[in-house]
């Protein structure tokens, strides 16, 4: 379905490709600025890669053609030093490396920035499932939202579900919101990865790693653990569901028991006022 729509793509964005496809060679469809940046860097580097490939192939082919067994002319028998040639083949690769390094570092440091997040989500890797915590929302006893996210076994899949990618509890987050993710692990090293959001970060026991995420559009984004973590490493997918702010607040209200309300507000309004004052 997605493959077909991608074929007739260009104008009609029928269905976005947010999960790995069988025999997929290209990228998935992007859902975040980080992803766009990564693909742009890839395209930039690919330009130089093709340039180098053509140059090297041309030199190699012309050498094979001109100096083969049949007509070996030994034209440069006494050429053992060429300053201009050496300058060219030293400086031009250096310039290519610089041209690749600058956009690469720029992207690297941009992806590293977590300046002013509106909310924080904690993702904790376990053998072999993910736990999530939303601790911006606390009651007076300090209880927060936390849940585990397990793979849906093949026998429980419904039509249209993705095998080995569906989970029972998705991470629900709002679109167009600056989110800080804190990732860590409880047992061995895991890796939190969602290709269509441009996210891959190792989860190390005893260490808290952060990355920032802004999701541009609503959708369900699939990823998998990306650090070999044991026998069920391939069976602990990540599913992020990006929804509108209203839907997110409604989801939060379902997660939070009514006693968490303060000052007479419903949970939805209260959370909106306290956490996203710019939109309420």
């Amino acid at each position: 379905m997605c493959f077909l729509s991608n074929l007739i793509w260009l104008s009609s964005n029928l269905c976005s490709n947010d999960a790995a496809q069988p025999w997929q060679f290209g990228f998935q469809d992007g859902g975040s600025p980080s992803y766009e940046g990564i693909v742009e860097l890839h395209d930039d580097i690919m330009f130089y890669l093709i340039l180098i490939l053509v140059g090297v192939a041309w030199m190699l082919m012309s050498t094979i053609r001109k100096f083969n067994w049949n007509h070996n002319q030994i034209v440069h028998k006494y050429l053992n030093h060429g300053t201009v040639l050496e300058l060219i083949w030293t400086i031009s690769p250096a310039l290519v490396l610089i041209a690749i390094a600058f956009p690469s570092f720029k992207l690297l440091y941009l992806l590293d920035e977590v300046i002013d997040p509106v909310m924080t989500v904690k993702a904790i890797g376990n053998q072999w499932y993910w736990s999530y915590e939303y601790s911006d929302y606390l009651d007076q006893e300090g209880q927060s939202i936390e849940f585990d996210s397990y793979l849906v076994p093949e026998s429980d899949l419904e039509i249209g579900d993705l095998r080995l990618l569906e989970v029972d509890n998705r991470v629900v987050v709002p679109v167009d919101t600056h989110i800080r993710f804190i990732v860590t692990a409880r047992d061995v090293i895991h890796s939190f990865a969602v290709p269509s959001l441009g996210v891959k970060l190792d989860c190390i026991p005893g260490r808290l790693n952060q990355f920032s995420l802004v999701i541009n559009r609503e959708g369900v984004f699939y990823g998998q653990c990306s650090e070999l973590c044991g026998v069920l490493h391939g069976f602990m997918p990540v599913v992020i569901e990006a929804v509108s702010l209203e839907q997110y607040l409604a989801w939060l209200s379902d997660q939070i028991p009514p006693y968490l309300t303060k000052e007479g507000y419903t949970p939805c309004i209260y959370l909106c006022i306290t956490h996203l004052p710019s939109v309420c």
Binding site: D112, M119, T120, L201, L208, N209, Q210, T274, H275
Partner: peptide
């Protein structure tokens, strides 16, 4: 701020000490 914002003491990806 209701959550932990940017803290110049912890500008890196590693936030362990920030929490602590």
């Amino acid at each position: 701020s209701l959550i932990a914002g940017f803290d110049a003491r912890f500008p890196n990806q590693n936030q362990t000490k920030h929490c602590w």
